[in-house]
Simulated assay, not measured.
Amino acid sequence: MRRVTVADGVELEVLDFGGRGPALVFLAGLGNTGHVFDELAPRLTSQRHVWALTRRGFGASSWPEQGYDTATLGADVIHALDGLGIERATLAGHSIAGGELTWVGLHFPQRVEKLIYLDAAYAHAEVDDLLKDLPSPPVPEPAPEDQASRAAVSAAVAREVGGRFPEEEIEQAHVFDATTGRLLGERRWPGALRRIREGRASLDFSSLRVPVLSLYVAYEGTRREEAFTGLELMSPAEQEKVRAVFPRLSQLLLAPQEAIRKLPGSKVVGLEGAEHYLWLTHPEQVVREMTDFLGP
């Protein structure tokens, strides 16, 4: 672990997993740190020198009050590469990190070898705009027993995402009481989630000019739309309002995959039965697809 300066007063946590060959840099999803890749990253070190970044506002990285828009977060990635002496890298990002991947690919293609989206190729800004005036699901309160200890938090997360997080991810993404071990909260700047959502940019996947691998969850029926809207937590009346936009929502969710399919040297793979943290539910398939795509 080390830190790299990306802006005045802003440092990012960097994890160096070692390895040989060109750089492969992982970017975590919203709320996670680079440690979420602690078990996936070492499996790729025979092909690449593997790194992971924790974005500003989370974990051990700096917590500034500004700089959570897509462009600044993307620029943080470029500055991190500069600080590490990496001229060109393959970037692999999960979930919300797809915005940073696409922004870097569009604005700094000379710094990118390839892009790998881990259930991350989504038109988030357009989806947010479609859903902004619709009901939002209530935020469920965690059960007290799920906050009693590190082990309890780890088990609760595993039930929610379909696989157990690395131990250090649980440690770095949460704050625990030093005496009782009970969960006190998330380890992040309080405004980070809201600022990132507000700062999402509209990005044109079809304008990418680097090879792309997109691995995504292949949902059945309307499960994808239901997952994005939190439909199951809403009242019947609210569900009716939300379901009315499902045809347009489906188009928005699938459009980036269709755009990527048309890019030279690119590949799109839907993983049936997977969950959002693809490498936890389908580790062998994810490693195989990434290994093949990275090449020798």
Results as ranks from 00 to 15, higher is better:
residue 89 A to V: 12
residue 107 H to N: 15
residue 110 Q to H: 15
residue 109 P to G: 03
residue 114 K to S: 13
residue 146 D to L: 00
residue 95 S to P: 13
residue 113 E to S: 15
residue 64 P to A: 05
residue 85 G to E: 09
residue 166 P to N: 09
residue 72 T to S: 14
residue 185 G to H: 01
residue 171 E to V: 10
residue 66 Q to K: 08
residue 74 G to S: 10
residue 69 D to H: 08
residue 97 A to K: 01
residue 68 Y to W: 05
residue 142 P to Y: 07
residue 116 I to C: 01
residue 142 P to V: 02
residue 99 G to Q: 14
residue 172 Q to L: 13
residue 57 G to Q: 06
residue 42 P to L: 10
residue 181 G to N: 09
residue 183 L to T: 02
residue 45 T to H: 08
residue 77 V to S: 00
residue 55 R to H: 11
residue 59 G to Q: 05
residue 53 L to Y: 08
residue 172 Q to H: 15
residue 78 I to M: 13
residue 185 G to C: 06
residue 58 F to M: 12
residue 166 P to H: 10
residue 124 H to W: 14
residue 83 G to F: 12
residue 169 E to D: 07
residue 56 R to F: 03
residue 181 G to A: 12
residue 151 A to M: 07
residue 185 G to F: 06
residue 54 T to R: 07
residue 109 P to R: 02
residue 132 K to I: 08
residue 158 A to S: 14
residue 161 V to N: 10
residue 177 D to A: 09
residue 138 P to C: 02
residue 126 E to M: 00
residue 56 R to I: 09
residue 49 H to D: 11
residue 76 D to G: 10
residue 71 A to T: 07
residue 52 A to Q: 05
residue 170 I to M: 01
residue 170 I to N: 00
residue 65 E to T: 13
residue 56 R to P: 08
residue 110 Q to D: 14
residue 148 A to Q: 08
residue 57 G to E: 13
residue 61 S to T: 11
residue 89 A to F: 10
residue 128 D to W: 09
residue 133 D to K: 02
residue 137 P to F: 14
residue 87 E to R: 14
residue 103 W to E: 12
residue 98 G to C: 08
residue 153 V to C: 00
residue 124 H to E: 11
residue 149 S to C: 04
residue 104 V to A: 09
residue 165 F to M: 15
residue 79 H to V: 02
residue 56 R to N: 09
residue 163 G to I: 03
residue 116 I to K: 00
residue 146 D to F: 07
residue 155 A to W: 02
residue 75 A to T: 14
residue 137 P to R: 13
residue 90 T to E: 11
residue 57 G to R: 07
residue 70 T to G: 01
residue 132 K to T: 06
residue 140 P to H: 04
residue 115 L to Y: 03
residue 76 D to S: 10
residue 177 D to F: 07
residue 91 L to Y: 05
residue 47 Q to E: 08
residue 141 E to S: 14
residue 68 Y to Q: 02
residue 105 G to I: 12
residue 112 V to L: 06
residue 135 P to Y: 03
residue 168 E to G: 00
residue 81 L to M: 15
residue 136 S to A: 15
